Amino acid sequence: MCFTFLPGCFGAINTSTRYIDLDGDYNTVMHTACCLRVACKVSTNHRVLRSCKPGVSVPPKLQDEGKGRCPQPTKEKPASGCGVINGQRADKTVIRQSDRLGIREEIMVGRKVDREIIARRNSCRDRMMIKLNFCFFFCRGWWAFLLIQLHMLQALAQDDVAPYFKTEPGLPQIHLEGNRLVLTCLAEGSWPLEFKWLHNDTEITAYSTEYKYIIPTLQRSHAGFYQCVVRNRMGALLQRKSEVQVAYMGNFMDTDQRKTVSRGQAAVLEFLYIISYPRPQVTWFRDGHKIIPSSRIAITLENQLVILAAEATDAGGYYVQAVNEKNGENKTSPFLYLSVASEY
Results as ranks from 00 to 15, higher is better:
residue 215 I to C: 01
residue 216 P to S: 10
residue 218 L to R: 04
residue 223 A to I: 01
residue 224 G to S: 04
residue 224 G to R: 00
residue 225 F to R: 07
residue 225 F to A: 12
residue 226 Y to N: 05
residue 228 C to Q: 00
residue 228 C to R: 02
residue 228 C to H: 03
residue 229 V to I: 13
residue 231 R to L: 07
residue 232 N to A: 06
residue 233 R to L: 14
residue 234 M to I: 08
residue 234 M to E: 07
residue 236 A to S: 14
residue 238 L to I: 11
residue 239 Q to R: 10
residue 245 Q to Y: 00
residue 245 Q to G: 07
residue 245 Q to I: 09
residue 251 N to H: 12
residue 251 N to M: 10
residue 252 F to I: 07
residue 253 M to S: 15
residue 255 T to L: 12
residue 255 T to Y: 11
residue 259 K to E: 09
residue 259 K to H: 14
residue 259 K to A: 10
residue 260 T to Q: 09
residue 262 S to E: 15
residue 262 S to Y: 14
residue 263 R to I: 15
residue 265 Q to E: 13
residue 267 A to D: 01
residue 269 L to R: 01
residue 269 L to S: 05
residue 269 L to G: 02
residue 270 E to W: 01
residue 271 F to M: 14
residue 272 L to A: 14
residue 273 Y to L: 13
residue 274 I to F: 01
residue 278 P to M: 03
residue 278 P to E: 03
residue 278 P to N: 01
residue 279 R to M: 09
residue 279 R to N: 14
residue 279 R to D: 10
residue 280 P to Q: 02
residue 280 P to W: 00
residue 280 P to S: 04
residue 281 Q to W: 09
residue 281 Q to N: 13
residue 281 Q to H: 12
residue 283 T to R: 09
residue 284 W to F: 01
residue 285 F to L: 13
residue 286 R to I: 03
residue 286 R to N: 09
residue 287 D to V: 05
residue 287 D to A: 08
residue 288 G to F: 02
residue 289 H to P: 00
residue 289 H to K: 15
residue 290 K to G: 04
residue 291 I to D: 03
residue 291 I to T: 04
residue 293 P to Q: 07
residue 293 P to V: 11
residue 295 S to D: 09
residue 296 R to V: 03
residue 296 R to K: 08
residue 297 I to A: 02
residue 299 I to A: 03
residue 299 I to M: 01
residue 302 E to I: 07
residue 303 N to D: 10
residue 305 L to N: 00
residue 306 V to S: 04
residue 308 L to P: 01
residue 309 A to K: 14
residue 309 A to V: 13
residue 309 A to R: 13
residue 310 A to T: 06
residue 310 A to V: 05
residue 311 E to T: 12
residue 311 E to A: 11
residue 313 T to K: 12
residue 314 D to I: 04
residue 314 D to H: 04
residue 316 G to Y: 00
residue 316 G to V: 02
residue 317 G to S: 15
residue 320 V to M: 05
residue 320 V to Y: 00
residue 320 V to P: 00
residue 322 A to W: 00
residue 322 A to V: 07
residue 322 A to G: 09
residue 322 A to H: 05
residue 323 V to F: 12
residue 324 N to V: 02
residue 324 N to S: 06
residue 327 N to F: 01
residue 328 G to C: 02
residue 328 G to T: 01
residue 328 G to S: 03
residue 329 E to I: 06
residue 330 N to C: 10
residue 332 T to C: 07
residue 333 S to C: 06
residue 334 P to A: 15
residue 337 Y to Q: 11
residue 338 L to G: 06
residue 340 V to G: 07
residue 342 S to H: 12
residue 342 S to Y: 14
residue 342 S to R: 11
residue 342 S to V: 11
residue 343 E to D: 14
residue 343 E to K: 09
